[in-house]
């Protein structure tokens, strides 16, 4: 008597245990294999320059700032929102930190505190615009990024702040513990902290639920707006931390970092990361692998003598390919292609 409705077709048939599923294996570890392949190829091509401790040390010193930026990006992305202002936030926080030391003679700890706080405040503004005013996240944060760019240029007149900075911070790029660059260690600590929040706390679970289905989340008692708001505050604070680390990596605070192209590698890494580990989902682990894949490839390419403009082409292509690929994986999981609003 009752109409039997067609049940939703099984996207991923349940797998029997036992036999190794090679498709799944390659999907999960494809990016790591690709990273190993890139390292092997360049090590063969440039054994004297690429495959050296100095080169790997340099990659491990340069990439942490970008890695923290990329980790900042994935927090709102898990909730289905884009924050394209993390680059600008990073730039502003670096200027705030440097200026606090250089112009106001504040101690290092206070300067760092102000830098991170400024990032969190920008995140709160972004979150309010997106969660409570209902502005599309890409457009809203793009607007904020543009404003920040203008403010930074106005404040600095386009001149980097390089004097009066605490040497503890500016020397950090040459420090290492047991041969591991301190910047890399700091990145690892931040990564573990964010991983903990995203996977081990109710907040992280609620954020993933909001990103997966906002209506289901509402009916499960989750305050979606607040959760989205908080994701932007976390992203802003992380961008602030990245800004502080940027002073350490570069030795000064430059006003030229605030453009959107700066975050393209971070964006590419976040989406590359979503094609690996737990395909279709943004993870801290995947994002870091993505960053080091991109950084290593670009380092290798420059060592084999490729023109610098190739870097732009490579980063741009990586963004598009990574997003397309992760969207396909997402569709396989959920039947929906779109990301974010």
């Amino acid at each position: 008597m009752t109409m039997v409705k067609e049940t939703k077709h099984i996207a991923n048939p349940p797998r029997g245990g036992g036999s190794v599923n090679w498709t799944e294996f390659f999907e999960r570890s494809g990016l790591i294999l690709l990273l190993l392949l890139v390292i092997t190829v360049f090590a063969i091509l440039r054994p004297n320059t690429f495959a050296t401790y100095a080169n790997f040390r340099s990659i491990a010193t340069v990439q942490p700032v970008m890695a923290v930026t990329a980790i900042a990006l994935i927090v709102p992305l898990i909730g289905g929102r884009f924050d394209v202002s993390v680059g600008a936030t990073l730039g502003l926080s670096a200027i705030v930190t440097a200026s606090a030391m250089s112009h106001f003679q504040l101690p290092l700890a206070a300067a760092i505190g102000l830098g991170v706080l400024s990032g969190a405040l920008i995140g709160a503004v972004n979150g309010t615009i997106v969660a409570y005013l209902g502005v599309n996240s890409i457009i809203g944060t793009l607007g904020i990024a543009t404003i920040l760019g203008g403010v930074v240029t106005g404040y600095t007149n386009g001149i980097p702040i390089s004097s009066g900075l605490s040497p503890i911070l500016t020397d950090i790029s040459i420090q290492s513990v047991l041969g591991i660059p301190v910047l890399f260690i700091l990145m690892a600590v931040i990564a573990v902290a964010v991983w903990f929040v995203l996977t081990q706390t109710p907040y992280g679970r609620n954020l993933a639920a909001v990103g997966a289905n906002a209506d289901s989340a509402r009916l499960a008692g989750i305050r979606s707006k607040r959760v989205v708001m908080q994701s932007f505050v976390i992203a802003g604070a992380l961008a602030g931390i990245a800004g502080v680390l940027q002073i350490g990596a570069q030795g000064n605070a430059g006003p030229q970092l605030v453009g959107i192209t700066f975050i393209l590698p971070a964006l590419a890494a976040a989406f590359l990361g979503a094609t690996t580990w737990q395909p279709g989902r943004f993870t801290v682990q995947g994002t870091i692998i993505g960053i080091f894949f991109l950084g290593t490839t670009i380092s290798g390419l420059s060592l084999v003598g490729i023109q610098p403009w190739i870097t732009d082409v490579f980063n741009g292509a990586a963004v598009v390919l990574a997003i397309a690929l992760s969207a396909q994986l997402r569709r396989r999981r959920t039947g929906s292609l779109d990301i974010g609003s």
């Binding site: 706390t201 109710p202 679970r205 289905n213 989340a217 999981r333």
Partner: peptide
């Protein structure tokens, strides 16, 4: 309005009573 398609069965089950497994902020 019911399920979270991108999430696992386990996470779908526990989304409404996470508090029961959480001690000191950790699930």
């Amino acid at each position: 309005e019911g399920v979270f398609q991108g999430l696992s069965v386990r996470h779908n089950l526990s989304i409404a009573d996470l508090g029961c497994f959480t001690r000191a902020g950790r699930i």
